[in-house]
């Protein structure tokens, strides 16, 4: 209230306001053309405001919905990833089971839990140990071919020396022509089939398999495929490059050969 204006000043306006309010209520009680028109007009005006307000509400709802959907999306993404992973694992395991059933070996399935690359040895750690009746020098394979051999065996963990290791050697032969040699690795993605005499029958695309001449590796395991054959001017042997049958980058489940059926 402004200074100098007493209650009577406002009383006049309050009286007028009350009179007008009562009059409006009385007018609204009519059911005539004018009131219908006003009601219609008010409904239109309110409709516009409601419409605008609904946009405002929609904005806040959208933010909430967006958060919710993002959360759901993330959850579905994770579920989807897990399911894809399970599907792939399922596929791999099926292959392994098929391999296990078809072959002549007694196998124990296990999982690769770590890969390490040391200066003197390349190996992977397997989730299997002497508690599972495995021992040193047992051969490790996958359905596609030779992985390596166990060289350290703990109670529930073992180290497997893989084909791509400088100290790894395995006696092998060309499957088609039976030409023999020793498989080794000197770095890179490929192995070498050494000590195959010049002029031997070796072609690109030939499979290299284990010969079974050593005490460790049984015969017939795929080692790799010949991808390069050269005969150097000097020396007695051919230079044969082999692409390993196993993709060591995606190695996850493997088998340890524990015996022959």
């Amino acid at each position: 209230m402004k200074p100098g204006r007493n209650l009577i000043f406002y009383k006049d306006y309050l009286t007028l306001g009350a009179a007008l309010l009562i009059s409006i209520i009385l007018m609204a009680s009519n059911n005539n053309r004018q009131i219908e028109y006003v009601k219609l007009w008010l409904a239109n005006v309110l409709g516009v405001f409601q419409n605008e307000w609904s946009y405002v509400q929609l904005y806040f709802d959208l933010k909430e919905k967006n958060d919710l959907l993002r959360k759901e999306n993330m959850q579905l993404f994770l579920e989807n990833s897990a399911m894809q992973e399970m599907a792939l694992e399922n596929k791999r395991l099926k292959e392994l089971i098929g391999f296990n059933e078809k072959g002549n070996f007694q196998l124990k399935a296990t999982r690769v839990i770590a890969k390490q690359k040391k200066s003197f040895i390349n190996d992977v750690i397997l989730e299997i140990g002497f508690a599972d009746s495995v021992s040193r020098n047992m051969v490790v394979v996958v359905p596609t071919g030779l992985v390596g051999k166990l060289y350290q065996v703990g109670k529930s963990r073992s180290n497997c020396q893989i084909l791509l290791d400088q100290n790894f050697r395995v006696s092998a032969k060309i499957q088609r022509s039976r030409e023999k040699g020793i498989v080794g690795w000197k770095g890179g993605k490929f192995c070498l089939l050494n000590e195959v005499p010049k002029h031997s029958d070796v072609k690109i695309g030939d499979w290299v398999i284990t010969s079974g001449y050593g005490e460790i590796f049984p015969a017939g395991l795929r080692v790799g495929r010949v991808v390069g054959v050269t005969e150097p001017a000097r020396g007695l042997f051919m230079e044969i490059k082999i692409k390993p049958a196993v993709n060591f980058d995606i190695l996850e489940e493997v088998f340890v050969i524990t015996g022959i059926k």
Binding site: L16, I22, L26, M27, S29, N30, N32, Q34
Partner: peptide, 15 residues
Amino acid sequence: KFFGLSAFMKSIAGF
């Protein structure tokens, strides 16, 4: 014919 309209208008006119 429009109940309340005269009351409304006469209040304003008087004021």
